[in-house]
């Protein structure tokens, strides 16, 4: 326990006994201990309904926490209001509705940049536009008109704009074309190499295992397996055991659908 607490006190992100769900009497996440180490790329896997999304939404303050604690770089953030989390360095990209569709591309970035010191804002927005040429070509366009892949780009750019200490993404590949998925995953690897630890919820198991360094498997709200991604990818039993009896073959073959 003391080892766990001290690990939590230094790790970029840690949860201790996290219980969360929409209703207090109906927990979906039922007590998860998890630590994200510096520079790590961890993917969260598990069958449908295992609580993967709820787990990361609870960390981001979108689902009420009913028990346990959350730590960001050693600081406890369990009771922090949602809007304070990003100021502390936790950036979250939701699965759906992750951009402001009625605002322009530039305004989406400006809204996020508002937490930065005034002098840095424009420079950070320009840096993000430079990193995503698709967005830079028409920053005045209404974001609601973007394609799925472009929306995901904008959402990721918005999250990275504030130079977070931790990046969390909830199924960013859902609904994207295979080409857009591979582009986005390549970008995530790049971001991770630049030093940002990433926590990624994915349905697309094979692709996720290929880019992540570690994988955790959630089943029925509990963390049931924690292993290096490469080991998991090589283990034929894991799919059968944890990823659902009928879906596992397809999922491990990389055809997992949202």
């Amino acid at each position: 326990m003391t080892a766990a607490v001290s690990a939590a006190s230094s790790a970029p992100l840690a949860t201790r006994g996290l219980v969360a769900g929409y209703e207090p009497d109906l927990p979906i996440v039922k007590g998860i201990d998890f630590t994200l180490a510096p520079g790590e790329f961890v993917t969260v896997l598990g069958p449908n309904g295992a609580g993967k999304s709820t787990f990361v939404k609870a960390i981001a303050g979108l689902v009420p926490v009913h028990g346990g604690t959350l730590h960001l770089s050693g600081e406890e953030i369990t009771d922090e209001p949602r809007h304070a989390l990003v100021r502390k360095g936790l950036a979250f990209v939701p699965q759906t509705e992750n951009i402001f569709a009625t605002l322009t591309i530039r305004e989406n970035l400006q809204v996020a940049a508002a937490i930065l010191p005034k002098a840095e804002r424009q420079q950070r927005i320009n840096a993000m536009l430079a990193a995503y040429p698709d967005l830079a070509s028409r920053p005045g366009a209404i974001a609601g008109g973007l394609s799925g892949g472009q929306r995901q780009m904008l959402a990721t750019a918005r999250a990275l704009l504030v130079e977070p200490k931790v990046l969390i993404l909830d199924e960013p590949s859902a609904g994207l074309s295979p080409k857009a998925v591979s582009e986005m995953f390549a970008r995530l690897v790049e971001i991770n190499r630049s030093g940002v630890p990433i926590l990624l919820v994915e349905q697309n198991v094979r692709a996720a295992l290929a880019i992540a360094s570690r994988a955790v498997i959630l089943v029925d709200g509990l963390l049931r397996h924690d292993a290096p991604a490469a080991d998991l990818a090589a283990d034929p039993d894991i799919g059968r055991l944890f990823l659902g009896a009928h879906a596992d073959g397809a999922a491990l073959a990389g055809e997992g659908t949202p």
């Binding site: 981001a60 303050g61 979108l62 209001p81 949602r82 809007h83 304070a84 989390l85 990003v86 100021r87 979250f92 939701p94 509705e97 992750n98 951009i99 402001f100 569709a101 009625t102 605002l103 305004e107 400006q110 809204v111 996020a112 508002a114 937490i115 918005r158 504030v162």
Partner: peptide
Amino acid sequence: DLGRAMRAVSENPALAGVVGIDT
């Protein structure tokens, strides 16, 4: 900034919180 934040909250209060807007 205030106006953009207002439009953001009007469209999606949850996401507005995620990007750091105090609703």
